[in-house]
Amino acid sequence: MAAQESTRVEYGKALLQLGKENPDIVALDADLSGSTQTKHFAKAFPQRFFNLGVAEQDMLGTAAGLALGGKIPFASTFAMFATGRAWEQIRQSIAYTKLNVKIVASHGGVSVGEDGGSHQAVEDLALMRILPNMVVLVPADGPETRAMVRWAVEYQGPVYIRTGRMPFPVIYDEDHRFELGRGYILREGEDVTLAGVGLMVHHCLEAAHLLAQEGVSARVLNLSCLKPLDWQLVVDSARLTGAFVTAEEHLATGGLGSAVSEVLAEHCPVPLQRIGLRDIFGTSGKAEILLKHYGLMPDDIKGAAIKALARKNGR
């Protein structure tokens, strides 16, 4: 089994490292610096770290002001509170004038676990994807997290990065580099395309493995750059395989499933099955149980692939 890393922990390390390299980087948190992992930066650079207390709206506004003052602010809290509580601050104070604020929010999806539905962001990708000027990223593992954070420092403009609480298996090599607007083919296949973000990328790979045992060859995509989406890769994959499955730890509406639907409907309509929460909030429980409960496991993805294949073959 591959090594396990949690994307939030890797974010914390990356931020610390980048903070050493670039004195313009500042970090903000809203009383969750342990959970979001900004605590390492805070300890190393107390003058460049601002805890705003339990005040997410103020945190995002303050980040906007720091960006206007030439700094590169990284603002972190739980995905729910960053994108939910402070959505309008992100819209008006940051996205509207394309300010250079990086929002790295942890605890995306139901794998948050025991804290329950109030703390599991299942709509954050929808809330961020809808905003003009916003880049939306969901790293699939540790190396991709580090690559994205490093890239975000160089990029001028607002970026939303969703990290997870749970450790994920590592997919990429240590020297992985991130490119804006690029999706990645992780496994070649001709019968069906499986596309995921975050932890679900790993589940797509496992599903492809299960499908192979039944003679079905699945192409697997990591669409970690949810916005701007690599629509060319989506279209090419749809043309090649003729059947598509999306998988995300998010509502099946508004996130990856919607983004892919939009592209397919306009450019290459093929049968699509979406894996995600169906108009329902999360609940308390162990992450593994919740992922099963909401149908987010490799087996569920495999089932969706077989459905998409059946539709493709007119059955």
């Binding site: 709206q57 506004g61 002001g65 720091l66 206007l68 003052g69």
Partner: peptide, 15 residues
């Protein structure tokens, strides 16, 4: 929203 932004600008000015 403006006062939070002003705070950020004042912090940046200090830095």
């Amino acid at each position: 929203q403006g006062l939070s932004i002003a705070n950020g600008m004042a912090l940046a000015s200090r830095l």
